[in-house]
Design a protein around this nucleic acid. Structure first.
Length: 864
RNA sequence: GCGGGUGUGCCAGAGUUGGUCAAAUGGGCCGGACUUAAGAUCCGGUAGCUUAGUGCUUGCGCAGGUUCGAGUCCUGUCACCCGCACCA
């Protein structure tokens, strides 16, 4: 077994010293930007799942580097976040301490994985040099009216003591505390107006050609653009807008439902109903929007009536728990053609009117049926719109409303504005100052960054900044009087929304990044990360990209050309790795036992990298066996046989293609087959090419072998081998097959005779091919089904070329393909391999040519 | 409820313009070689029936269909997994 530890550290040091992975911002070479989503530096360190993730990118980076690309492959840390803050609170300390310790450990571990990052470009989001630019972006958004403050019902996690974005609430529970119910609370919060970009974000998805379909679908559903109609209802003489996708059911509206969380709800509640409504709202206050669905559809009458815009009838307005305050306008018109509305109406004994009938039937009485007719149909009970189809009626009714100025066509999105305020310490401070005289003011750009205090010791969960006078107390930038700082910090997703740009110019203190550099490297050519980020990070990063483009800083529209979602690495038990299950595999342990190259090789050879995979001890040992085999093999440098040349060249071709497609598992198979096919003697060039193929997967071992065969420079910066198509000869594979069949024959016969013959005569027979022809002729004479004839041909010849001739057979069954007899070639191949045979069987072997016209019934191998 | 995905041999997992698929590769298991022995290593086997065979049969969740031909396309069905969630 190679001394992995020694080899690994030798090359890791050499790489670091030589700075071969550092990259310049311009080059004659084509650029390639590979990026993995940067991690949160947890104090538990990296586990094998991270190793898998980063290996995927590293292989690509190494591959592209060898293919003469100028490769940007950086790494950084998403170092703001709750765990460090919580740890600090527990230890009555500063989160920076924990964070930087964790980062140090991460870097060490990453280097031990042999990842070829350009460490000179490291970014850490908790550093003022970085988050200064978070604040700068915020100020730009403020200028453009994209950052604003408003009071809104927000999700409040009592454990984090902070507000969560909708996207951070999972099933009504906090995303970090699975058992903590999210409460609803009204607070004054900062929002980013991502909805201004909703349409572009939505339409742009279609152009993300190399993004996984899954991510695209999830984003499409998340943003959810829907075309509909805005209709104005009058309540107590005030206009209330509602949004509907079904204006064709307008005549069916017999009541309205307003969200129980609507900010203006109380304004329409009458004195008489006040008590009941308040009771109802209070009951719901501990339930988040996302949790509402678990409740039964409930509601109470507000006491007010709305005027139907067309019939002018009075319809009662209810408040209900099934209407979202944040979608549309927070109020819906309710009718007989919606299941929820129907159920609600039945419960509250509200009469319903059917206005649609099926195209081929009669309408059911909605007051009696339990199932609403929700499809499209023909309008009835709808005044002058009777007889129209739903589709037509949607248009006509909207047109009519537009004329009356009571409605219009509109587009609605499900996507909500992004709430970025966090009442936490360990985040980017929002650069805002509040002055009693001058109001809310942005921190002047020259005063950035607004730094987090370094000296503070955290003791409580609540916002430490709020209670820390040296931070809060400041001067008003306008009147120079006493003023207070904003104490909210930003969601960490703000940091990660543009980090990829900072890698291109990480040390710039004058500007967010140099435009030329950022535009040279971007967009990212390959972005690797988990699919769990489909709806949050991957939408935010697109949003920021578009915003910075609109500031004329970027000349592209989307952050990444290609996105790749890696699968999850699960423990040996097939379960998600977790501390509680005790199934976490650490790179250190594995590396010590098998070497990190073995682990890298194993991780990518289990399955396609986008599949979830299981760690397996037996499996990794298989990879170890392979590495041992090639490491210990003694190569005689000389001349490659035709066969070796063929294998090397065809493997180069296939492996190159597979790596490009990120089908690493298939690439590894081909590499294994290549090394296993080697004969004793091989040319230096072929051997070098083979080691190069291995190098992105097993960089340390490859460097070692490279040196062992007498090379001085690093294989990591050598150029990728090119195949010579002239040396690829598929016939060699066919002959190989024939030979292995012959071996099988010999073995079979050996087993049968159970004695050790001294001499074997193998005659290469083409008899079977004759037998096919015979068979075909026979079948034809019998006037058999043509399909059987063709099947016979295909089964026997196994050549694609012939299968392509099938249509010809169908047209003209008499014209049989001419089967080329390759007896001469087979003989030759066997002769070439005779020594191998003799060694294999410990026999004397004699090869005899058989009469090609001999009957197919004769044995082709004779023993003496 | 809506949307998405998956279902292949003892196991993991390849396999999309339908045709070299009884099914890559790895693991496991069985046998052989080597060895005093074990391990490592190397070789062979691993659906069933056969065999002198490069033969036959069955076969990729289940049931049908299209086709000369289907793991691959279509329809239905079952199972599991994941995302979103009262979207008006």
């Amino acid at each position: 077994m190679p001394n992995f530890k020694q080899i690994e550290s030798k090359w890791q040091k050499a790489w670091e010293k030589s700075k071969i992975f550092q990259v310049k911002d311009s080059s004659k070479k084509k650029k390639f930007y590979v990026l993995e989503m940067y991690p949160y530096p947890s104090n538990f360190g990296l586990h094998m799942g991270h190793a898998f993730n980063y290996t995927l990118g590293d292989i690509q980076a190494r591959f592209k580097r060898m293919n003469n690309y100028n490769v940007l492959y950086p790494m950084g840390f998403d170092s703001f976040g709750l765990p460090a803050e919580n740890a600090a609170i527990k230890a009555k300390s500063h989160p920076k301490k924990f964070t930087e310790k964790a980062i140090k450990n991460y870097i060490k571990q990453m280097k031990e994985l042999g990842l070829s990052y350009d460490w000179s470009r490291i970014i850490e989001t908790h550093k003022p040099e970085y988050y200064k630019w978070d604040q700068w972006i915020f100020l730009q958004m403020l200028k453009k009216g994209l950052a604003y403050k408003k009071e809104a019902p927000v999700n409040w996690c009592p454990k984090c003591k902070t507000v969560l974005a909708n996207e951070q609430v999972h099933n009504g529970k906090c995303w970090r505390h699975e058992n903590t119910k999210v409460e609803v609370k009204n607070l004054n919060q900062w929002f980013l107006k991502i909805t201004d970009y909703a349409d572009e974000l939505y339409e742009g998805i279609k152009k993300l050609d190399n993004w996984p379909e899954l991510v695209k679908k999830l984003q499409t559903n998340w943003i959810n653009k829907s075309y509909g109609t805005e209709i104005i209802f009058k309540i107590n003489n005030k206009s209330w807008k509602i949004f509907t996708t079904r204006p064709d059911t307008l005549y069916s509206v017999t009541f309205m439902v307003i969200s129980a969380q609507h900010p203006k709800l109380m304004s329409i509640v009458t004195e008489k109903q006040k008590k009941e409504v308040e009771k109802f709202v209070k009951k719901l206050s501990s339930v988040s929007e996302e949790d509402l669905d678990k409740l039964e559809k409930e509601g109470v009458f507000t006491g007010s009536y709305a005027i139907h815009p067309l019939t002018k009838k009075k319809v009662p307005v209810y408040t209900g728990n099934f209407v979202l305050a944040s979608y549309g306008s927070g109020m819906v018109m309710a009718d007989a053609h919606d299941q929820r509305d129907l159920e609600f109406a039945h419960k509250h004994k509200i009469p319903l009117i059917a206005v649609l009938k099926p195209k081929d039937g009669e309408a059911e009485d909605p007051n009696k049926t339990k199932k609403a007719f929700t499809g499209h149909g023909i309008l009835i009970n709808s005044g002058k719109f009777n007889g129209l189809t739903s589709e037509k009626a949607k248009e006509e009714i909207t047109k009519h409303l537009t004329k009356l100025k009571l409605g219009k066509n509109t587009i609605n999105f499900r996507l909500k504005d992004w709430l970025i305020s966090r009442q936490r310490f360990w985040g980017t401070p929002i650069p805002i100052i509040y002055c009693d005289k001058c109001g809310t003011l942005p921190v002047p750009e020259k005063d950035l960054p607004v730094k987090l205090p370094d000296t503070i010791k955290l003791t409580k969960t609540e916002s430490a900044l709020e209670n820390y006078k040296p931070f809060v107390e400041t001067k008003c930038p306008k009147c120079k009087g006493k003023a207070k700082r904003e104490t909210d910090t930003m969601d960490t997703f703000a940091n990660s929304s543009w980090y990829y740009l900072r890698y291109t110019d990480p040390k710039n203190s004058k500007e967010i990044f140099n435009k030329t550099k950022a535009n040279y490297w971007n967009p990212i050519d390959l972005y690797i990360g988990g699919k769990e980020h489909a709806c949050m990070h991957l939408i935010y990063i697109r949003f920021y990209t578009k915003f910075l483009r609109d500031l004329k800083l970027l000349n592209f529209n989307e952050p990444a050309k290609k996105m790749f979602n890696q699968g999850m690495l699960q423990g040996p038990d097939g379960q998600k790795m977790s501390k509680s299950k005790g199934n976490i595999i650490l790179p250190e342990t594995v590396s010590k036992k098998y070497g990190i190259d073995t682990a890298r090789l194993f991780l990518v050879s289990i399955a396609n990298p986008d599949k979830d995979i299981n760690w397996s001890k037996d499996g990794v040992e298989g990879s170890l066996r392979f590495i041992n085999r090639i490491f210990n093999k003694k190569f005689k440098i000389g001349k490659s046989s035709k066969k070796t040349q063929h294998k090397v060249n065809s493997t180069i071709k296939q492996v190159t293609k597979y790596i490009e497609e990120l089908k690493y598992n298939l690439a590894v198979i081909k590499i294994r087959e290549l090394f296993d096919s080697f004969e004793d003697e091989i040319s230096k060039k072929d051997l070098e090419a083979s080691i190069k193929l291995l190098s992105p997967f097993c960089p340390h071992i490859a460097e070692e072998l490279w040196e062992k065969i007498g090379n001085k420079k690093f294989i990591s910066i050598e150029s990728w081998p090119k195949y010579d198509s002239k040396k690829i000869n598929p016939e060699i594979d066919t002959l190989d097959e024939l030979i292995s069949n012959t071996i099988k024959d010999v073995n079979n016969i050996k087993n049968l005779v159970k004695t050790k013959p001294k001499k074997v005569t193998i005659s290469v027979s083409e008899a079977w091919k004759y037998s096919i022809i015979k068979k075909i002729k026979k079948e034809m004479e019998k006037d058999y089904d043509i399909s059987r004839i063709i099947k016979a041909v295909i089964d026997k010849t196994h050549t694609k070329e012939i299968s392509k001739l099938v249509p010809m057979f169908v047209k003209n069954p008499k014209k049989l393909p001419e089967i080329v007899l390759t007896q001469e070639k087979e003989l030759k191949a066997l002769k070439e391999n005779i020594s191998k045979f003799e060694k294999e069987f410990k026999l004397k072997i004699e090869i005899k040519k058989e009469d090609p016209k001999a009957s197919p019934g004769k044995p082709s191998i004779l023993f003496e």
